[in-house]
Write a protein that binds this DNA or RNA. Structure first.
Lengths: 122, 122
DNA sequence: ATAGAATCTGACATTGATGTCAGGTTCAAC
DNA sequence: GTTGAACCTGACATCAATGTCAGATTCTAT
């Protein structure tokens, strides 16, 4: 598929898709005229990339991580280097802390929302 | 306490603490010479602010939200306006989605880490 | 062949919290 | 009072993904 459809199906802007390619996160074939042609699997990959971005990973880390995923390509995935594992463990811990913080903030919001709703009579 | 101690105890930089004040998130008394003097409760408030920032809220939203918290001051808290409630509900939903994404990304990282650990023999 | 939609590259702007630096003032201890 | 640490303000820089725009090229349908 071409970039417009991929953008539509993933909810990610064309601008970002081109950026992903530039960062080595997302490969694309090219038509004779130079237009990008994506395989069907690109949809899942883009969504995964977005999730990793949302988790606070930077593109460089994602670029190192992606080849180690088994379900990204059918092909044989690489094994994470020790340095990468260290980094990923740090990221995982950070994500764990973030989930805790998010949950805490969620409760704060809920409290305020509930207090106001009770006033209004829901 | 003064800004240096507050920074130390919260892990938030002095720069950020001044920024919080500028954004109306954190009040401070002033000594005769103009130095900031914080009450003990500032520690908790700063930590809460940090959590809300980590949850992706912008300072303007936090500024509107803080007066509605009951445990921030002992005093009577304000009730959230309908507009604010709308915004907070949107934020809460976004946080919920983010937690889901984070959990998903956490699993991805775990998988790669485990695969590498098994190779190394843990 | 041609028109209009889609895509290309490249450059510049934005966002918002935070880092950093400079030059000056205040505080606390001796 | 002096000195060094802590603090003040104000300005400018940073980061990284994304938005946006311009001008050119390609694709697709008629």
């Amino acid at each position: 598929m071409r970039i417009g459809e991929l953008a539509l199906r993933t909810g990610v802007s064309e601008r970002s898709l081109r950026y992903y390619e530039q960062q080595g996160l997302l490969a694309a074939e090219r038509t004779a005229g130079g237009h990008r042609e994506y395989p069907e699997a690109a949809v899942d990959r883009v969504i995964r990339i977005q999730e990793l971005f949302a988790a606070g990973l930077r593109s460089k880390t994602i670029a190192r991580l992606l080849p180690c995923l088994r379900d990204t390509d059918g092909g044989p995935s690489e094994i994470a280097t020790p340095k990468l594992v260290d980094d990923l463990v740090a990221e995982r811990d950070r994500i764990d802390r973030m989930i805790i913080e998010l949950t805490s903030s969620r409760e704060v919001l809920d409290e305020v929302i509930d207090a106001a709703s009770r006033r209004t009579g829901s």
